[in-house]
Simulated scan of single mutants.
Amino acid sequence: MPAFSHPQKMNTPRQDMSVILVTGSYDHEIRFWEAWSGICSRTIARSGESGQVNRLAISPDKRLLAAAIHKKVNIYEIASTANEPLVTFEGHTMNVTAVSFHNEGKWLVTGSEDGSIRIWDLRSSSLHRIYDNGAPVNDVVIHPNQGELISCDQAGSIKQWDLSDNICSHELTPAADVPIRSVTLASDGSCLVAGNNNGRCYVWRINDEHTGLPRFQAVTRFQAHNKYLTRCLLSPDARYLATCSADTTVKIWAILGNYEFKLEKTLMGHQRWVWDCAFSADSAYLVTASSDHTARLWEMSSGETVRQYNGHHKAAVCCALHDGAG
């Protein structure tokens, strides 16, 4: 049973690792939260260290937290109380905008405004590979098969990178020169959704290359928001799409047959831009981070806020949640 069904078990990350909830902010702080009580159980206050926290990712085994901080990535031990990272990956020359763990925790992928995608070996703490994307990278996700990456960029392109052949094998440009802000993949690798700066979402079916059909088959597009879209994310059960926006809302789209997306509910409560979101493992809850300095935990069934996390002194721009099996 998913950990979120047992609020009585939710203590601090050091006492109980069933739920890891983390937020990052322009106040240079990373905060760990007790999901149900709303209490901040640990703060990584990077005093004297410059650079805002851009993105967060939790390793599949719940042991490590990767924090993209300006031009570098700090790797922290979640069970520790230390402010110092275990290791720091440096080499990007501009903001790191994306970070994601391999499902066995062997490597980490990052994307940056410097136009590069980098793969870091967590076992040797070294840089393994660099891809030249040719334009500032806004997001990178790892395909569930762990053999491909999907990136999106400021030039309006979506690219598939084949890790075995070390090449860009496919490129999509749904709207020329309109930056693609965010990409998300279904957990079974069957569907890709991308959201752009104009608030529009594009959907592709991903076909097995052995079927003879195009690898990416465009199936629909729709206007999710009338303002800047910051994040789109498919739920683990692939039944919903969450979209975050500068319009202060999060919209939840039900995914019907034939890849039809229907607006199910609009989550309202944040006072400023909503930058990031993360689903619980059972797709029943959603965490969001906003420029209003707060994060919120939403119940998907009711669309209501069940907890608000207060403590950041500037915009909360990223969040990470891991309540599944470690």
Rank of each mutant, 00 (worst) to 15 (best):
A3T: 08
H170P: 00
K314E: 12
Y240D: 00
G48E: 08
A35Y: 15
S290I: 12
F32S: 08
D162V: 00
D61A: 08
A176H: 15
M1E: 12
V22K: 03
R46W: 01
I150W: 03
C277K: 01
T288C: 03
A320N: 05
I30K: 02
A176D: 15
S50Q: 12
Q308R: 15
L263M: 06
E304Q: 14
N310Q: 13
R221G: 06
N133H: 15
S280Q: 04
E304M: 14
A155M: 11
K265V: 13
H143C: 11
G38L: 08
S280D: 01
R42D: 10
A284H: 11
V22Y: 02
M300P: 02
H313Q: 12
V287L: 06
G105Q: 02
I150L: 13
C40E: 09
D153P: 01
E77V: 07
D114P: 08
E77Q: 09
E77P: 05
W298H: 05
S235T: 04
V22T: 02
H270N: 15
D132W: 13
D282A: 11
G199Y: 02
C277E: 00
I20P: 00
S125N: 15
R296Y: 10
L263F: 04
N145S: 15
V178Q: 12
I252N: 03
H128I: 05
Y240V: 03
T97L: 07
D114W: 11
C168R: 07
W161H: 07
F216V: 00
N198E: 11
L234C: 07
G303Q: 05
H92K: 14
A289V: 07
S112F: 00
D276G: 05
L297F: 14
R118E: 12
Q15L: 11
I117A: 06
I180N: 00
K314F: 11
Y240A: 02
A315P: 01
W36Y: 15
E260Y: 04
R129D: 02
R31T: 09
E84I: 08
D162P: 03
C244V: 04
L233M: 09
R63G: 05
N95D: 11
V141C: 02
I39P: 00
M300Y: 03
G199F: 03
S182T: 02
G195F: 01
